[in-house]
Design a protein around this nucleic acid. Structure first.
Length: 441
RNA sequence: GUGGUCGUAGCUCAAUAGGUAGAGCACUCGGUUGUGGUCCGAGCGGUUGCGGGUUCAAAUCCCGUCGAUCACCCCA
């Protein structure tokens, strides 16, 4: 291996917060995506892929100009033509944009879409939180009924459970709609106005920028003040109350474990009514413990919420909608920790060993023969020595090696070498595929 | 963006109280002619993340920087 110079050492380092998904992990990512897609397919979700780049203003108009994502977490660029584009920091906005652009309201409603891929946020990386991260998401557009929430949450939790990431628990809350939200906000502000001096620094800032988030602070002093603070749940207007009640009823009847967390808020402007997050339920339910609580530091595997106003922010029409997603990196991380390794049967069953140029030239023919019957053949055509090739075959753990040398080429035969018993038999090239097929069964 | 911890070969780690880097695994080759897993031998591979400072002397101390990690912020 060539030694690295200083410059090269930096060159071959991936950018901060970006990571390679290596072959051994790729299988797991694949597994997560496949499970999520399989389940959502059954529930009627169609796949969609939107661009990684969108107009920068699109996100500003929808996520909220003062949200952290817009203020400091977006990767933006200017094209040579002078357009301002941004790498998508989340998936919902792009999907909604596509819905509006293509007039999907003329399709049977609601429109149910799923998507997957990379998203980008320029923030300080941490375990399970990357600057380029993988997400699987669902959106149900133009549906105001609580059943939509139920379907999204059900699919996400089902996916996690079937992957072996369970047991999980859903943390859920309602933010109300534009009417009741405002009343609550007003009362919340007036409650906090008197106590602002008792708040921590960042909360004093939150008071101005994002008062709902005051409820999320973990500082002792703030937590104390929070206890007496008015709760959104008591401010919900009747329609919102009814809606939320229905959502919870759906969760009950479909056996999804959840707990109500009146402090759960989301920073994005477009959220209304239902918001939720999905966690691994690591705490065993013990007797006497009435409430399920998630450890403060635990990371959400997924989340989402209703965004009834997003469409209106981008167009003239109203399309109530709900969406949710899974943080695939986090799910994979969890599965790895649980040692639920994806055992793939993709390793080849046969290794082709060639000796001499005549046999080497037959290699591709042989591989093609096997390919046609859907068997993959490993080989090491760059190597000449029999020993070296056998060694590789052994490391790959294949059950059979096929050996072809000068003699075999002349006879149009091939040796089947059983890697376990070391038994060998010579068969004709014409029949080798069939014979191997039998043996593998 | 703020604060704590950490950074030695591809990987896992060593290096007595500062004295100028070692091991295992992996990889390559060999132990004679067309046969693997064990064993034996050899080789490859690091100016100790990078840059500067203190010192006769630094992987080891100090500063900066980059990266990882944890907490905050925020979120998937």
């Amino acid at each position: 291996m060539a030694s690295k110079t200083k410059k090269q050492a930096i060159l071959i380092q991936s950018p901060k917060g970006m990571h390679d998904i290596l072959p051994e992990d790729y299988e797991l990512y694949q597994k997560v995506y496949e499970k999520a897609e399989e389940i959502s397919e059954y529930y009627g979700f169609s796949p969609i892929q939107t661009p990684h780049l969108e107009r920068t203003e699109l996100f500003g108009a929808s996520l909220g100009e003062t949200s952290d994502i817009i203020e400091k977490q977006m990767y933006t660029l200017r094209t040579t033509g002078g357009n301002h584009l941004a790498l998508r920091p989340e998936g919902t906005v792009g999907v909604m944009r596509a819905y509006l652009e293509h007039g999907m309201h003329t399709l049977p409603q609601p429109v149910m879409l799923r998507y997957k891929g990379s998203f980008f946020r320029h923030e300080r990386p941490q375990k399970g939180r990357y600057r380029e991260f993988q997400q699987f998401g669902l959106e149900i557009i133009n549906e105001e009924k609580a059943s939509a929430e139920a379907i999204v949450i059900k699919i996400l939790t089902l996916t996690l459970e079937e992957l072996g990431a369970g047991p999980i628990i859903v943390r859920i809350n309602s933010l109300g709609d534009k009417d009741c939200k405002a009343g609550y906000r007003k009362d919340l502000l007036s409650y906090y106005r008197k106590k602002i001096n008792g708040l921590c620094k960042s909360c004093q800032k939150r008071y101005k920028t994002n008062p709902l988030r005051l409820l999320d602070c973990k500082e002792e002093g703030c937590a104390e003040i929070k206890k007496e603070a008015p709760q959104m749940i008591n401010y919900l207007c009747n329609p919102c109350k009814q809606h939320f009640k229905e959502v919870l009823e759906f969760l009950d009847s479909s056996g999804i474990p959840y707990f109500l967390d009146t402090y759960l808020v989301r920073g994005l402007d477009y959220y209304s009514r239902t918001v939720f997050e999905i966690f691994k339920d690591s705490k065993k339910k013990q007797e006497g413990e009435a409430e399920n609580e998630v450890e403060e530091t635990q990371i959400a595997l997924g989340g989402g919420g209703r965004y009834d106003y997003l469409a209106k922010m981008l167009s003239r029409k109203d399309f109530p909608a709900i969406g949710g997603g899974l943080g695939v990196d986090r799910v994979v991380q969890l599965l790895k920790e649980k040692d639920a390794k994806a055992k793939t049967n993709k390793t080849p069953k046969v290794f082709f060993v060639q000796l001499g140029s005549a046999a080497k030239h037959k290699s591709l023919d042989i591989m093609e023969k096997f390919r046609k019957t859907h068997l993959s053949v490993a080989q090491s055509m760059g190597k000449d020595s029999l020993k070296g090739q056998m060694k590789i075959a052994d490391k790959l753990n294949v059950p059979y090696a096929l050996i072809m040398g000068q003699k075999e080429v002349m006879e149009e035969s091939i040796i089947i070498h059983d890697m376990n018993s070391r038994a060998q038999e010579t068969v004709s090239v014409d029949k080798v595929v069939e014979i191997i097929k039998q043996k593998i069964k």
